[in-house]
Write a protein that binds this DNA or RNA. Structure first.
Lengths: 222, 222
DNA sequence: TTATTTTGTTAGTATCATCTAACTTGTTAA
DNA sequence: TTAACAAGTTAGATGATACTAACAAAATAA
């Protein structure tokens, strides 16, 4: 058996390693706001459980098994977020904290039921892919809005990483997933972009925002 | 702050004391399958937090505050059970374990939303009353089916206590809440009853079952 | 009413998940 | 290339939640 605490370490390690394949004790420490020695001993424990690859003074990796387990926790988190938004009427900026708790529920039938009621969704309310029941996750090959060029027209696919403040901001601008964004102008000085979408003309978005909006060029559906 | 473990002790104590107003260390120990010394020290801890009234060698009671807190946990449990049955399609015999975990979620808006989506229900799927947001609980003055007499006609209002096996049994006999039960016969030897309801004629129910079915004489609605 | 059994309590131990202090290893900058 | 700093590790402490063993009080039976 694996505790909620251990699950949280796995999940954070999964997210941290998804970029470079490895992470440091220090990274996890900062992410979870837990002191390094605590993280260190937890990593040793998870290594004994064959979920983490640990060698003194070397970067941390998840084992294959650890990666699968983490993906299944993330599956529960994202299914829950989707359920909260689609079936219960919560806003996409209010579901993270609830999902953070519900992801630890041990009842496969509960999450299977959500999945079914939702029609087996592929992504969560923020556009992040939902791992399947075997822990396999589709890689979204989206690009950052901030990497696009003037004149391009792209589809808004995901927010990553999605903080509550950012999501509130996007809501206030009526910026929701699936919209066609037309890049009208890019300010060379600070990288902020002027975008048109839906019935909005020439809305200004800072580079900090554009950095977190993921888009696809050929407007994909589903 | 109160831990999940502490919440479980409070809840069990609430249920045990709801009959006689007090409970013993031994009762809790058996209920939770936790050894007496552990229960003992937990009671002292809860007494320090002013949730339990503890005196050496005396029966345990909940304080007013402890009673309210316990009722609010039970509120979350019962709302969840109702939600699982009404909105997600679970059977009434399969919701207890899931609700047992979800009752510890710290997110009032989550339970408020359930309440609202359910139309502010007064009882859970097993007929037990749902405490209100202040922790007040309506007392159901039902009687046991086993205390009724031949010839009486009563309404099936609740199952208490409701084990998974009992609920499955009731489902298999198509015995659901709200039905009119006509008591045809009572076997003096073992107290088993012969009952007619819906399109069923003369179904035999053991006294062990009849002991756990709560009924009202004047068929109440809602 | 005394003896026996059940219930409650104390004391001491273990594990998990956290911490601080101190030391070691690795990295970076003078 | 060594001195300083950052990152990683070890050791030891703490609080929460469990345990067993041993003892004390209360309830029950002989």
């Amino acid at each position: 058996m694996i505790s909620q605490t251990e699950e949280n370490y796995l999940k954070v390690l999964y997210n941290l390693t998804s970029l470079k394949g490895e992470a440091s004790v220090n990274d996890i420490s900062k992410q979870l706001d837990i002191k390094m020695p605590t993280v260190n001993s937890m990593m040793k424990r998870l290594a004994e459980k064959k979920l983490v690859v640990y060698e003194s003074y070397k970067p941390l990796k998840l084992s294959v098994e650890g990666k699968k387990l983490a993906a299944l926790i993330i599956r529960k988190h994202r299914l829950t977020e989707m359920y909260l938004v689609e079936k219960m009427g919560f806003g996409w900026e209010n579901v993270h904290n609830i999902a953070e708790q519900i992801e630890h529920i041990q009842a496969p039938e509960f999450f299977d039921k959500m999945d079914e009621l939702l029609g087996f969704p592929k992504v969560d309310p923020h556009g992040s892919p939902i791992p399947d029941a075997d822990g396999n996750i589709a890689s979204d090959n989206y690009l950052k809005l901030s990497d696009c060029k003037v004149g391009e027209s792209v589809t808004f696919m995901a927010v990553q990483p999605s903080s509550e403040d950012l999501l509130k901001f996007l809501t206030s601008r009526e910026l929701s997933l699936g919209l066609e964004l037309k890049i009208k102008q890019i300010e060379p000085f600070d990288g902020s972009m002027v975008i048109s979408y839906a019935n909005k003309e020439n809305e200004m978005l800072s580079s900090k925002v554009c950095d977190k909006l993921l888009v696809s060029k050929k407007s994909k559906k589903k």
